[in-house]
Design a binder for these strands. Sequence first.
DNA 1: TAGTATACTTAACGCTGTTAAGTGATAGCA
DNA 2: TGCTATCACTTAACAGCGTTAAGTATACTA
Lengths: 210, 210
Amino acid sequence: MLNAQTTRGPKQRREREKEALRQVILDAARELFVSEGYENVSMRRIADKIEYSPTTIYLYFEDKASLLFAVCEETFAKLAKRMENISRKNEDPVETLKRGCRAYVEFGLKYPNHYRVTFINHPDLHLGRDNYLREGSMGMRCYSHLRANVEECIKQKRFRRGDVEALTQMMWAGGHGVASLLITKPDFPWVNKEKLIDLMIDVLVDGLKA
Amino acid sequence: MLNAQTTRGPKQRREREKEALRQVILDAARELFVSEGYENVSMRRIADKIEYSPTTIYLYFEDKASLLFAVCEETFAKLAKRMENISRKNEDPVETLKRGCRAYVEFGLKYPNHYRVTFINHPDLHLGRDNYLREGSMGMRCYSHLRANVEECIKQKRFRRGDVEALTQMMWAGGHGVASLLITKPDFPWVNKEKLIDLMIDVLVDGLKA
DNA sequence: TAGTATACTTAACGCTGTTAAGTGATAGCA
DNA sequence: TGCTATCACTTAACAGCGTTAAGTATACTA
């Protein structure tokens, strides 16, 4: 029984090739989505880039939104990793929370089109396809991490208020407000971006402190 | 010279009729945009609704985005009025600021599709068509009003910090963060909406207080 | 009353996401 | 080794989109 449950053989080779093409499609889509924005990229353009016919993509992804969803999961995973690194380095929970929020906003500013499609636009939302923050997703992992941060601050009695869930959502909303406005309204006469980010985080934390 | 610079006559009548049709188009567009969202409404659907051919719309508006822009101006005007009413009623500037922010967020939640197109989505943004907050626009009027609110708080030494512009933008970002997340992620397990709104505003103001 | 300007429509262009049907190679079995 | 069925992929098409060029009546002017 040499070939039972092996990773070799023609069947396995084809499976690997399928997986490889899936990744090629995903890479092409990510590159185009990030550089030009979801709405400005057509399935035909992605197909052109990888030198396959447009319909081939549909053999690997249900539709355009699914493609976007897969790309977003990768992005979220990166962000989650980044935030977890910050937690490991720092001891003070309040400082960790601040740095985490900062990392979140700057991540958004660094990859604006990515942030757009992941946190702002949500195409086909109204159709109940809001998978981006479902249980077990990378987005939820980011949220849970932020939540743990906030919880630690409360546990150590650094905050005056105690509703973990509400406080987490408020911190998220504060970061998202700054990030999304800076991204979607680049022509507005903003004060210095870094200053605005710091101000939001500092004021929120100040307002919470015991 | 009875007819010199009069408001009557065939020429004037036609002008009035033109203006009337413009408003009919605008009303139809607003209704569809608000109930179904900008992206899900086609020019042909608007045309059907008013029983004209699609091309007629282009005699009154440059393109779909212009139509949206006109609708947004109306929305902004409503919001501006609402905020100005609050200022007139209240004496305490901090309370006024809080109520103004609250009004802003609740306005967004009441007209989510309107808020989407006005503050979140911005189609054709990347093409430099970000007219929504240009000088003299209704959007800018709202912002200026908020700014005046903040300025009054600072003048009366109710706040610890003094950068009017930065503080205004932070308050806006806080409100926008809550509004946009609640609108774009309705499936997320939010805490009570009212509570989240109040929390954000209270914590921000607390963090600013002298 | 003839001619022109105005208000609107018809038909089309080049896109879009998506799908049904078709093709050609390959793998497994007789 | 030869047949068949499966698999990976493509071609062609559908129904829709925003937008525009060209055409047609109608109403006003001279």
